[in-house]
């Protein structure tokens, strides 16, 4: 495969559980990066703590695996000190939306030139399945044993409101679309945010009636509503189903950005 030489082959197979979508997202991101003709020594992967954040450890570039939630803050330092570098951040929903929420919105506001790929499995996978800020209402987790009572974050709307230049959402089923979106994000100067809904068979699926990985992927596929279709429904004043999430390229604009390669 073309992006195969971006992997640290001595580290594979990785630690993700069987059926975990994180590996898929790494594939799509690397496939997009491979098309950018970036040099490996000028590409830096940064991550925080969690399942998603183990990803840079399997990629053959300089990589920074940092503290919980702070990946974007570390990446800001790397990018500001060396604007020549291409900075990509892998993060998860708990890492980025809970403990790192402040760093996330401020990076969007600064519109700093980096790409953030958020592997949203809607749960804290590495610590064994606690509720996260994106756990849907009513879903079970080890800290929401009677169903999650809180309203989840819409990370893409958050990023758009905070000022990011590029925002997209896909799922781990939409591999080709995801690859294209990541590539578009990498090409966009300024802050690019790509949220990827993914399956976590071990911590999420097991408690929420997706015992089989394929059932969860089928759910992600059937409950994703293309942005164009949503817009059509809104235009015709038709009902937009509440249980579906919008996928597609949600925001693309050209606001002034920080730390762009000279």
């Amino acid at each position: 495969m073309s992006y195969d030489d971006w992997f640290r082959k001595d580290r594979l197979p990785h630690i993700f559980c069987a059926g975990c979508g994180n590996g898929t997202i790494i594939n799509c991101t690397l496939a997009a990066i491979d098309q950018m003709n970036w040099k490996k020594e000028e590409t830096i992967f940064v991550s925080g703590i969690g399942c998603s954040s183990r990803a840079p450890g399997y990629i053959l570039t300089d990589s920074l695996h940092t503290t919980h939630g702070r990946a974007i803050a570390f990446a800001t330092g790397v990018k500001m000190a060396k604007p020549d570098f291409n900075v990509v951040v892998f993060t998860g929903d708990g890492d980025m939306a809970a403990i790192g929420g402040n760093h996330f919105i401020h990076a969007c506001r600064r519109n700093i030139d980096m790409t953030v790929v958020c592997m949203n499995n809607q749960i804290y996978g590495m610590t064994g399945g606690q509720g996260s800020p994106t756990t849907p209402k009513g879903c079970l987790s080890s800290t929401t044993p009677y169903g999650c009572a809180e309203t989840p974050f819409d990370l893409c709307e958050l990023a758009t409101a905070a000022g990011a230049n590029f925002v997209a959402r896909w799922t781990s089923y939409h591999v080709k679309e995801l690859e294209k979106s990541v590539k578009a994000g990498l090409e966009t100067p300024g802050f690019s945010f790509i949220e990827v809904l993914t399956q976590c068979p071990t911590a999420f699926g097991r408690r929420n009636k997706f015992r089989q990985v394929i059932d969860h992927v089928e759910f992600l596929k059937s409950h994703s509503l293309l942005k164009a279709k949503r817009d059509r429904l809104v235009e015709k004043h038709e009902h937009v189903p509440e249980d579906m999430f919008v996928v597609g390229e949600l925001t693309r604009r050209n606001r002034p950005a920080l730390g762009v390669k000279p």
């Binding site: 990785h14 069987a18 591999v175």
Partner: peptide, 10 residues
């Protein structure tokens, strides 16, 4: 190449 992109374990 969808299978290759999807395969979480490369």
């Amino acid at each position: 190449g969808v299978c290759q992109l999807t395969c979480p374990d490369q």
